[in-house]
Write a protein that binds this DNA or RNA. Structure first.
Lengths: 242, 242
DNA sequence: ATAATAGTGTCTATTAGACAATATCCT
DNA sequence: AGGATATTGTCTAATAGACACTATTAT
């Protein structure tokens, strides 16, 4: 929106003082997903402070809001900053997108907190470096399965569920699967990702046919080499982009 | 999340005082859509105050945040309240759902405002009563076409575009079309809604076949009477729910 | 040689789309 | 009777799923 404010409007803005109606705190929370040991995993951090001290929660933090002309950081920037801070991962190498905004009154007992949730997909070859960043005991990749028996802080379970449902939906009609697989991959490996995320077997033949259409569309291309497996080696491909 | 805080945590909460880091204002903005005169229309209101005084903007307002134990209203509640206040429409009779959260720094020149945008679909038979609520000159249904030449306040054009793109997408795989049509409708009427929203003609025969599957699935049912038209009258149906 | 799985082929059912043909009502 | 459009029918192409079959490698 590029426009030139009128003189009158400029004057208004000069003398404008925000009313002190109570304002909520605004946070970004991240659902950082990857695949480790054939399981979908979400990164959780152990809370150091009340409330839910010692409990597991999604990584996140408050959005930086400046004062005066400096209004602070964009929401996306806050999400990317948190990703970097909490995992050490380069936000440019990770798919990160806004998920949904959770703002139920009382979701944080301290005060009114509105949380803009983001989902991030981390390629499994990048996931191991995450631990290196912080104290191992303070962050861990929880499998979705184990989450069923794990209590989460705040409404973070609901946020995780929303994220999974979103990712499962997008798997059908988008290319996000390529963000859950190393830079080069075989068709069976990609198929496993689908099977793991959707939690159902995919027919190898039918999957390959779908995949071949992507090849024809130029979305992916062959990469050099073959992947050695316990049986017949598989052709290696790579996604075109990045 | 139902849980019993420990005594220590209770003590923590008792003495907790929110830090006075600057906080953003949080608003809900509504993209209220309907169909009038065979055009998709969005409800805009004329701004009474700076900035953008006299300009057209999406209806909306700040989320009510309490202080202390009273944390105020949920985001959905705020959206429903604004809908009622700005249009007089019963939120229970209107499809309303969260769209996306816009929080770019500088999007409001006064101060940092994070806007949780909602989309609402108003059945065309309910749309006329909207005017009655407020001053006619202060609110109007703008056709999408006319919006191209109409400047909007803040980043509201981006919000409207996001809403339209969302609605167009959902038209393909959900039942939202029934929220853009009167309680009873004919197949051609429903087809016109698709054609208007997607901005392309729909083949009458093919559309009917898709529609017949909904009939078989029990999503819709025949309603009494026939719709008299300029030519052959059409069978009347109704959506099963509400 | 055998196990395992990569990769191909075939058949069926479903759905979208183009388009022709018929039915029914208003004027 | 004629115009308009609701409604039905037909054909083709694209896609998904079930499943049989062949190919190639490690062991």
């Amino acid at each position: 929106m590029k426009r030139e404010p009128s003189a009158e409007e400029k004057a208004f803005l000069e003398q404008y003082r925000p009313q002190d109606y109570p304002r909520p705190a605004v946070a970004v929370d991240l659902v950082i997903l990857t695949i480790i040991d054939a399981q979908v995993r979400v990164l959780l951090v152990k809370r150091k402070e009340h409330p839910f001290k010692g409990g597991w929660a999604l990584p996140g933090g408050f959005v930086r809001v400046g004062s005066g002309k400096e209004q602070g950081e964009d929401l996306d920037a806050a999400a990317r900053r948190e990703l970097l801070e909490e995992t050490g991962l380069d936000p440019d190498r990770v798919l990160i997108e806004q998920l949904y905004t959770f703002g139920r009154a009382g979701r944080d007992p301290r005060m009114r907190v509105i949380s803009v949730a983001y989902v991030a997909l981390v390629r499994p070859d990048l996931a191991p470096i995450v631990r290196a960043g912080g104290d191992v005991s303070d962050a861990d990749w929880f499998s979705i399965e184990s989450l069923k028996k794990q209590e989460l802080a705040f409404d973070h379970r609901e946020i995780v569920d929303t994220a999974l449902s979103r990712i499962r939906g997008k798997l059908e009609y988008s290319n996000i699967a390529f963000d859950l697989v190393p830079l080069t991959f075989t068709i069976p490996e990609l198929r496993h990702v689908y099977a793991i995320v959707l939690d159902r077997e995919m027919d190898p033949g039918n999957f390959r046919r779908k995949f071949n259409r992507m090849l024809e569309d130029g979305v992916i291309e062959r990469a050099p080499g073959k992947r050695i497996t316990a049986s017949k080696p598989a052709t290696v491909y790579r996604f075109k982009r990045r």
